[in-house]
Each structure stands twice: as structure tokens, then as C-alpha cells.
Amino acid sequence: MLMGKGGVGKTTLASAIAVDLARRGLPVHLTTSDPAAHLQETLDGVLDHLTVSRIDPHAETERYRQHVLETKGAQLDDQGRALLEEDLRSPCTEEIAVFQAFSRIIREAGKQFVVMDTAPTGHTLLLLDATGAYHREVARQMQTGAHYLTPMMQLQDSRQTKVLIATLAETTPVLEAANLQNDLRRAGIEPWAWIVNNSIAATPVKSPLLQQRAHNELREIEAIANQHAPRYAVVPLLQEEPVGITRLQHLANPGQ
């Protein structure tokens, strides 16, 4: 799961990881919960073993509404059905629908690699709140000693879920990434690594201005290494946008 604030390159990084896994012959499902993400445009092609999807809040909400009306609403009279339809127009309906889609995709991780480009931090934390609330409700209702597995438990399992926090080597993005990490830890989710994207310090530059920016980045990268992330990667700023299968593969494996 790629997490982080908007504009740090989560979609590109998630696509590069998915392409690299698929190129190894592994089954991969690349998906996004970010309404603004454009996975297909970033990939700009198709690849064997790679499936692409997105969680569309509007489509998921409509699917959920229809399911409820066809099940719970099937036996209601006109007045009861009208009340149910009014209830389904609540903002909570979208939260439930998106959570259910999120849960379905997480369950797929038992049979294939799932690479998720998440929505910007605030939206993702709301989704995790819903995931946590569902977990607590299941735990409350289950009998002592009963076996159960919730999406939150899967996210907390470091053997199954690897959370990658994407950031830039700048003061504000690093601070926001650190706050996100603290929020995740409070939810029992330990990030696996950080990715410092679009780094000028990792790029050969001659301009005095860019050299100064590269020098400033080194301070932030050092802070990440010493204070926040025992495991991290630095992705250089590229001359060309990493769009398309070939460039994404090169981004994941520069030596290939």
C-alpha cells in the first residue's frame, strides 16, 4: 500500500512496483482508492499478469444502494421502501460502500499481489477509521476464542501487508509523512519503508540553484534515515515523466 499526501507520486510509484512484479511473472492487481489517480494513463499500455482497477466512490455507492434495495427492500411496502431509499442517501452510505470495496480488494491478497495507490492522507485515514470500527464491532460480537479475520487484522499483519510511505525531501512533506506514520502506529500498522520521491540530491545537477536544493534535501533525507525510517529508498528526479511500461520498469530497476 502506497500512502502519503497528495502530489508526492504515489500513483507512479505504485505503478512501477506493480509493473516490476508482473514482469517477474507474478499475478498482480494494481488498484487505487484515489478518485484523482490515473493508473491507465500512467501505465499507457497492458502487461501480462497485471490487472488494473479503481475504487470509484460513486459507482460503489450505487452498487451498494441497489444491493440493499434488492435485498432488504424487496419485502417492504411503498412507505418502507421510501424510508429505506431516504436512508441510503445519507453520506454514511458512501463510506460503507467504499469500505466494502476496499475490503474485497484486501481479501484478494491471499491469492495474488495487490498493489494499492491510496487516496491522499486525510481520505485514507477516514477509510482506516471505518476499517477499525468494523474490526471492533466484529470482535465485540464474536464469542471468546472464536476465530475471525478482519481487514484491519490483515493490514496489521506485517507478513501480508507492506505499507510504503511516499514523501518528498522537503520539510513539510516529511513532517506530514511522520504524522501519518504516527497515526498508522496508533492503529497498530507499522510502515515497512519510506520512499523519497523526485529527489534532486540523487540526480547529477550543475545549476547552482539546483545544487543548493540538493544540499537542502540531504538534511531531510538524513532526518528520515535517523529519526523515521530504518528502511527507505530515494528515487531521483527524472528528465522525463515515468509514463509507460518501459519507463516504469526502469524506475523500479534502473539497472535493467
Rank of each mutant, 00 (worst) to 15 (best):
M1A: 12
L2F: 14
M3Y: 11
M3D: 09
K5E: 14
V8R: 00
L13F: 06
S15E: 05
A16M: 02
A18N: 03
D20K: 04
D20H: 05
L21R: 02
T31E: 10
T32A: 13
S33R: 02
D34L: 06
Q40A: 15
D44C: 13
V46Y: 03
L47W: 03
V52D: 12
R54Q: 13
D56N: 00
E60D: 03
E60H: 00
R63K: 11
Y64C: 09
Q66P: 02
H67M: 11
H67F: 08
L69C: 05
L69W: 06
E70Y: 05
D77M: 11
D78K: 04
Q79K: 10
Q79G: 12
A82D: 05
L83T: 03
L83G: 01
L83M: 13
D87C: 01
C92H: 11
C92L: 10
E95L: 01
E95V: 05
F102V: 01
F102R: 04
R107T: 05
E108G: 01
A109I: 09
Q112A: 09
V115A: 15
T118S: 07
T124C: 14
T124E: 13
L126Q: 11
L128C: 14
T131C: 15
H135K: 10
V138L: 10
R140C: 10
Q143A: 15
A146G: 08
T150H: 11
M153D: 04
Q154C: 14
S158C: 07
R159P: 04
A166T: 01
A166N: 02
L168P: 11
P173A: 09
L175N: 11
E176M: 11
A178L: 12
Q181W: 05
D183G: 12
R185F: 14
W192S: 15
W192G: 11
W194V: 01
N197H: 14
I200R: 02
A201G: 04
P204G: 08
V205H: 01
P208V: 01
L209P: 04
R213T: 02
H215L: 03
L218F: 05
L218W: 06
I221Y: 03
E222L: 11
I224W: 07
Q227G: 00
A229V: 07
A229Q: 02
P230H: 00
P236I: 02
I245R: 03
T246E: 12
N253F: 10
Q256M: 09
